[in-house]
Design a protein around this nucleic acid. Structure first.
Lengths: 215, 215
DNA sequence: ACCTGAACACCGTTCAAGT
DNA sequence: ACCTGAACACCGTTCAAGT
């Protein structure tokens, strides 16, 4: 019956991440989280300001874990790798992506903004001006977080919450009304990471074409 | 003191849409919604099965309002217009976009899937096979909903919840640590619709290059 | 068929009290 | 400095009761 070591912010954040990874954002309540730490709910408030602070901390942790690209690579490769690493880390924590994209988490620390800074650096090296760089950044971020969010949501239907891809739509899609959609459902399961990679290819092809400094 | 006409599902959905447009998703509670309709909370359950059913209905309504592209146009134009119209309708209801992207709404009716079907039809006409079409679809949807979500979330910070674009970041971005990011914040407010249009340009350029049947 | 009121099992968060 | 217990103002939803 060893006396429990005192709680700290890192432990709270780690437990929260484990909880959302295992059971989704909706399972993240102060009361349940505290229970998983063997403590009363109110103890958490000694380490996080409130629930939004906690959600921000989760997003910060994921952003901060994104590996940076080798600065010696050409700009298009750096951009691709940063986007891929962003996707990779967040795909391991889909609930955190949903929180980011759904505006429940809004991290603003330097560590959290670092991947964005790296994407921008690549875009400026490509010769885009401020406005064009902002638009390209929006395209990259939109693609990363949009595909992340849709990979776990859009084609998943309540009866089969864990179903991947279009599988779950088979019962609802009438081929007579949505023939093209039906053709997709016949493909079977997809590999979200590969689909993202191809989507990123398309966007980067567009960026290279538009870049003042070329590839 | 006229006797109130009976409620129906359409009225409930319309009031819910007005409520989220005015005050955001977090303001959509069965109790508040019922109050806005001059009724008790439990009356709503005669017209919607539960809160997720209600959120689905909101998303359905927005999807169903998306205007279809002229079928006589070339595939790339049809795709562009469908994506633009999707963006346009959802940008008028940002809270509904957030619900869709955050997996709180999961509409599966034919009307809701129609814009997706139209995008797919364009992609198949372009000559993509099933797998490539699915990947391109993910890119388009990811871009639309990703940029929608980020336009109202990522660069908005709690102290100024209504702030547009990067404005809100000025106080937190240290130019010494994030010089490129700081350069963006100096640009002033952005036009999200224009930024989306440019992002879409980039993606469509990539699609046209990759299309087996050309433009 | 539609609406209501009370109740249940939850939330986030405040506050005064303990150690 | 950190933790607790009771309390407050909310949630979604069930159910029995009304009309």
């Amino acid at each position: 019956m060893s006396r429990r070591e005192p709680l700290n912010r890192a432990k709270v954040v780690a437990a929260a991440l484990a909880l959302v990874d295992a059971e989704g954002v909706e399972a993240l309540t102060m009361r349940r989280l505290s229970k998983s730490l063997g403590v009363e709910a109110m103890s958490l408030y000694n380490h996080v300001a409130n629930k939004t602070d906690l959600l921000d901390a989760l997003a910060e942790a994921v952003f901060a874990s994104v590996e940076r690209a080798d600065p010696g690579l050409p700009w298009a490769e750096r951009l691709r790798i940063t986007a891929r690493n962003l996707y990779g880390e967040f795909s391991r924590h889909p609930s955190v992506s949903k929180a980011v994209v759904g505006d429940q988490a809004n991290p603003t620390s330097e560590a959290a903004l670092r991947p964005t800074e790296d994407v921008l650096e690549a875009l400026f090296e490509a010769g885009f001006d401020g406005k064009a760089a902002r638009q390209a950044l929006i395209a990259v971020h939109g693609l990363v977080f949009g595909t992340l969010a849709l990979a776990t949501s859009e084609y998943t239907t309540p009866p089969r919450p864990a179903a991947n891809g279009l599988e779950a739509f088979r019962p609802v899609v009438d081929p007579a009304w949505l023939p093209h959609f039906a053709r997709l459902t016949a493909l079977g399961d997809s590999d979200p990471a590969e689909d993202f990679e191809r989507a990123l290819d398309l966007l980067i092809a567009g960026l290279v074409t538009a870049a003042p400094n070329g590839a």
